[in-house]
Nucleic acid binder design. Sequence first.
DNA 1: CGCAGTGTTGACCCAAGTCAAGTTGCGTGG
DNA 2: CCACGCAACTTGACTTGGGTCAACACTGCG
Lengths: 234, 234
Amino acid sequence: MGSLDRSLIAGLSVFEGIAATDLDRIVGQARSQRIAKDHPVFQQEQEAHSFFLLLDGHVRVVKSTPDGHEVTVRYISPGELMGIAHALGRTTYPANAIAAVDCVVLAWPSRLWPAFAADFPSFSANTYKAVGSRLQDAHTRVIEMSTEQVDQRVAHALLKLIKQTGKKTEEGILIDFPISRQDIAEMTGTTLHTVSRLLSAWEDQGLVKSGRQRVTVVEPHRLLLIAEGREEKG
Amino acid sequence: MGSLDRSLIAGLSVFEGIAATDLDRIVGQARSQRIAKDHPVFQQEQEAHSFFLLLDGHVRVVKSTPDGHEVTVRYISPGELMGIAHALGRTTYPANAIAAVDCVVLAWPSRLWPAFAADFPSFSANTYKAVGSRLQDAHTRVIEMSTEQVDQRVAHALLKLIKQTGKKTEEGILIDFPISRQDIAEMTGTTLHTVSRLLSAWEDQGLVKSGRQRVTVVEPHRLLLIAEGREEKG
DNA sequence: CGCAGTGTTGACCCAAGTCAAGTTGCGTGG
DNA sequence: CCACGCAACTTGACTTGGGTCAACACTGCG
């Protein structure tokens, strides 16, 4: 602490259109925090004391059902806000947020939210824009779950992941954090067995390369054909 | 037009905490509009020129996919806002809104949104709270689609509908607008055939009574058992 | 009266879940 | 540094929920 400055957040889309001095004031009230891999940033049902900005790493947002199922809602990438329960009139977090790798976050006490929203209208507008696109995403998920086959959903999930966090390698586009078959199953509403079979088949066709907690998409274009249901499976 | 007054909106939760004179100013800028059954209030991809408050009736919000599937996102009840694309940074409507019965709505030009939000903070807070609960709902839908069997999803959908718009009759709780097997299928990601079979079976067991575009839930409690997967199907 | 929209039911089939038995590869402690 | 153990992954065999296809029945409107 102490050495936080506006360079950490300048240039992020949520803080677009905010003056440098205001950025200083905002950052000044944050506390920086490191979260070790597999540790929670916040937990479902817990009092929403803070909201967070992910500076570095990747966070998996998971909802647990009473009967023991886990559903991955989304992955958070650097630069995104999370735990903004308060902005949406909630007092508890709606899900668990787990660090997929070692992470660095900024945390602000939730009670600062109303003042931030009032003092920096573009901040609140940007935030609600982000909320809007999450709502959009959630509806897209519902539609995918309602109308698509498992192979299409898994293909869509991989495409979203490489778009969000893809890293070019000489083999293709790598998903840049450890992700298991089980994780992919929890994102797509299927089982690790089915994901494993699909990835094996796609590997045979040269579409992807995958290993232990690693997936590289070799041919995004053909994967897109599968996602859109335009390619018959061989 | 001309005779709109604050009594139309006073008491609605979105307008909670707003002074009477302000309510007058708000209503004064609205235009009242009737929408005939099966006609659109607004349409997917259309420029979001207005946002709406449903005064009377029921509106079905539907997303159409490129390949011709229709997914019902939600039903709107009197007192709820809709078409608030602008508040979420969108310039087009994300879905079709169709009047399930003859409806009456208030419409405001979208360009008024920023002024409303700035002048009536409790209005914007209430709205975002509503958005938050829609996001919540959407996530719940995703979880249901991922983890529940069709019978559970249909049971949940019926329970949500009677909670939202149920009307007590001597037979049970009636869903208070015309709803077809197809409509229920589009809410739950299944087919009209499966819905028909389920309703027939449940009717045999005395759980529901149903007819042409009419569903009455006779035993909500037992339906809840099915929704939660705690009752084996006989 | 006829037809179009809605609903019912039966027969069949297949995508994907379940169950079961491995194999592979990484991290840890001896 | 090796080997032990476990977590991650693979693959086969089998089962089944619920989708598809097809035929028919009801009902209220024009």
